[in-house]
Design a binder for these strands. Sequence first.
DNA 1: AGGTTGACCTGGACGC
DNA 2: TGCGTCCAGGTCAACC
Length: 289
Amino acid sequence: MPELPEVETVARGVDARVRGDRIEHVWFGSHREPCKTAAAVQAEGLQRRRIVSVHRSGKHIVMELGTRTEGTVASSGVEQKIEGQWIVHLGMTGRLLVTTPDAPVAKHTHARLTLESGREIRFVDPRRFGRLDFHDLSDAAGKAEIAFAAKGLEPLTIGPEEFASLFRGRKLAIKAALLNQTLMAGVGNIYADESLFRAGIRPRRRAGRLTRAELEKLRRALREVLHHAIRLGGSSVSDYVDAEGVRGFFQLKHCVYQRTGEPCRKCGEAIKRIVVGGRSTHYCPHCQK
DNA sequence: AGGTTGACCTGGACGC
DNA sequence: TGCGTCCAGGTCAACC
């Protein structure tokens, strides 16, 4: 599932391949658009824009788009006014790929962006949980929206105080709280389970009942597991691939996620599966208190 | 308002 | 072989 490390990997890969390129032609699939903004409006917004940069915010991929230009590729270092943003959410099975135009078009391809360099950006999403959105930031349009930012805080940079305050007084399970994107943005089912294992905390514990020491252990565990996963290109548990179509390797490092019945890597006890907040949840009954 | 549940969607795994 | 059923989960709407 694309969570923070997978989205980060894709965003970096796309940025490395298309930064400075220009969008020439935009195509959106006709059947049941995965679009927040109408496909026609999005296509119009993207058309002929310079791609200034691509980055991640929470689980969203944000493509910063410059002014419409007809000239040659902008030289690096030139200040570019951001006039729009293309927001891509991969949902569960979404892929954002940079390909050559002759690459076979996969089933469930919902968007194709032809670039000046000849490359193509493609959005493929079999399960259609992904979302595409365009934010118009140009004043000229008279309807400029504020720049996109994920609602929750970033787990990689959040400090001890902020982290603790997110859960204070909350009665829901800590696992469910970690998945709440309005508190922190980017954590999904895999890294919630993995960070709770590394912190030695049971997923059903009430968030507000964790001690300050436990919360700090969890904050560090989460940060470490996310960094580790990014280094390995994310987890390919279903069909996740990066911008080049390459699988990640962090699934080989999972301690609990989808290891129901298998021995715990620390103590050997069988990993249990329960349901918390409607999500399948994996933990070690011996190592997690 | 905080918290919980189910719908959305399709492919793959599994049972008979 | 083939059909039916269940499961995966990010997010949102609806409900308590």
